[in-house]
Design a binder for these strands. Structure first.
Length: 493
RNA sequence: GGUCACGUGGCCGAGUGGCUAGGCAGAGGUCUGCAAAACCUCGUACAGCGGUUCGAAUCCGCUCGUGACCUCCA
């Protein structure tokens, strides 16, 4: 197995991956806040980390992948809890809102063929752990309590530990010299301080008892508490979207140091943003397209619908650390490319038996490309490069299948490798799946057999008008007929 | 305003000092009754201007442009 290299946001460089415990990887990725439907940007992020998770497993690591569900709700600008707000608007119990959007989130992950994480902890089920962590931070002197709320003492932490701002590239001096334009009711000693426990106002629905009174945990605490619980004080990889670097991840690091004196993660991995119209997709400003709109085509931004696997493939064609611009043209290109690749996969399975006797140039070429594909996957999960290698072997596969290359040009062992590696990369690592556009029932298959048989007879008697009439009619019905040497086949377009 | 990215051929998108990225679109050809598919061949692109170097899309500087973070956000 080749060495895995990954880019660490913390050090800003790519280095060889060395797990803390040989053979094992602990990975924590910040999951969604379930107060609304997931949007496509979230999906890209979780697909990126899914590929990372799958790659690690493919390389033989035993991975514990923790991806949380944040159902406590973070504070809104106006001080209102997100979950509580959603509840009031929809006349639902807070936990009902949470359950509803948790379900739809998980359904979307299933649609995108994102494998479930090893553990999917929920913030509301870890209130005790969060309270304990607040207590630990208080005990260590990195937090202070005011009127039933507890704030992290960023100033003290920054001065004493010297790690604050490292991840996000903040300059501590700038943070500390920030003007103190605190709101009147703001109890924080410094703008850079942040709440780790908030006193619940009477109208606040989600609330728990704590040593500081009734309240709810702060913005960033659930990740610190749950990653520690399931992966230990220090674990291998912490991931999330690039927009979480600050303040979320920076504060998470601070909390973990504050509680246990050590860094939570060795490697920090951040996925980049999905762009629409050249700008970040965002729920708040309307520059967004939902997954369902993308599938159905019901959006002013696209001309038609695209299947989940097309979208997944589209995302894989860009590196996870690059921004990716969604355009209709790019999606159409991805759709064609994805189908071509899957068609090649099907062709592998119906290739004539290889009859090579000794290794040919073609054998070497195919094996070389497969090796490169794996190698490039291991270079910071470079899926676009790895995919390019598969596209290099695609014409060879198709030529073997179509007869342009005779079967004696490859060894039986090459076909075995081809089948194994393609299968592993396409399905196990990239997480693609065959989409049976046909989803043909037995009835449809029987009908099509009959129609193609009738057309075959017409062709045999050189009745071209009838043959073409059938083909054109089927095309209008969305069925493409392909004539080959061994008869005609069909597929839904 | 501060911090940080990015600007690649018609579109998307890899690539970080010399070696073909790849996909889609487009052109020509083979096959085919015609078509589709498949196969073969074809594109010297790297924002602009300077500099370093034997050699730069790749390093440095400046200019222009775009975006992200700084506030909930994957």
């Amino acid at each position: 197995m080749p060495t895995l290299y990954l880019y660490n946001s913390l050090t800003r460089e790519k280095s060889a991956f060395e797990p803390l415990h040989p053979g094992h990887v602990g990975m924590y990725v910040c999951g969604p806040t379930v107060y609304n439907d997931v949007h496509l940007g979230n999906c890209r992020s979780f697909i990126s980390f899914d590929v990372i998770f799958r790659t690690l497993r493919y390389l033989g690591y035993k991975v514990r992948y923790v991806r949380n569900i944040t159902d406590v709700g973070h504070l809104l600008d106006d001080g209102e809890d997100r979950i509580a707000k959603g509840a009031r608007l929809e006349q639902l119990e807070p936990m009902e809102v949470v359950q509803k959007y948790t379900n739809s989130f998980l359904e979307m992950m299933r649609i995108f063929n994102v494998s479930p994480p090893s553990i999917e902890p929920r913030a509301t089920q870890h209130i005790i752990e969060q309270i304990e962590m607040v207590a630990a931070i208080l005990e260590n002197g990195y937090a202070y309590e005011i009127n039933g709320s507890v704030y992290f003492d960023t100033v003290r932490f920054a001065r004493e530990k010297g790690v604050y701002g490292q991840l996000s590239g903040r300059v501590i001096e700038d943070l500390l010299q920030e003007t103190r334009d605190l709101k009147k009711q703001d109890e924080k000693r410094h703008p850079a301080d942040f709440a780790i426990w908030m006193k619940a106002e009477p109208e606040h629905i989600m609330r728990w008892n704590s040593p500081w009174g009734e309240g709810f945990p702060g913005w960033h605490l659930e990740c610190s508490a749950m990653s520690t619980k399931y992966l230990g004080h220090t674990f291998d990889i912490h991931g999330g979207g690039a927009d979480l670097k600050f303040p979320h991840h920076e504060n998470e690091i601070a909390q973990n140091y504050g509680a246990c004196g050590c860094a939570p993660a060795k490697y920090w991995v951040h996925g980049n943003m999905l762009l629409l119209n050249g700008k970040k997709m965002s729920k708040s400003d309307g520059n967004t397209i939902s997954p369902y709109e993308l599938f159905s085509g019901e959006s002013p931004f696209i001309s038609r619908g695209y299947s989940p696997m097309t979208v997944r493939f589209f995302m894989l064609q860009a590196h996870y650390r690059s921004t990716l611009d969604i355009t209709d043209e790019a999606l159409q290109a991805a759709d064609k490319g994805y189908r071509r690749l899957m068609e090649a996969w099907k062709n592998i399975q119906r290739l004539p038996a290889p009859a090579g006797k000794q290794e040919s140039d073609l054998d070497r070429e195919i094996l070389g490309q497969l090796d490169l594909a794996v190698e490039e996957l291991c270079d910071d999960f470079n899926t676009p490069k790895a995919l390019a290698r598969l596209f290099e072997v695609t014409p060879r596969i198709n030529a073997l299948h179509g007869g342009q290359i005779p079967p004696d040009q490859i060894l039986p062992s090459t076909l075995v490798r081809l089948r194994e590696t393609m299968s592993a990369l396409l399905f196990d690592v990239f997480g693609l799946a065959e989409e049976d556009q046909g989803t043909a029932s037995a009835t449809v298959n029987a009908l099509m057999d009959l129609i193609l048989d009738l057309r075959g007879r017409a062709r045999a008697s050189k009745d071209w008008p009838t043959a073409d009439r059938i083909r054109d009619g089927l095309k209008e019905a969305g069925i493409v007929v392909k004539d080959g040497p061994e008869g005609s086949s069909w597929s839904a377009s």
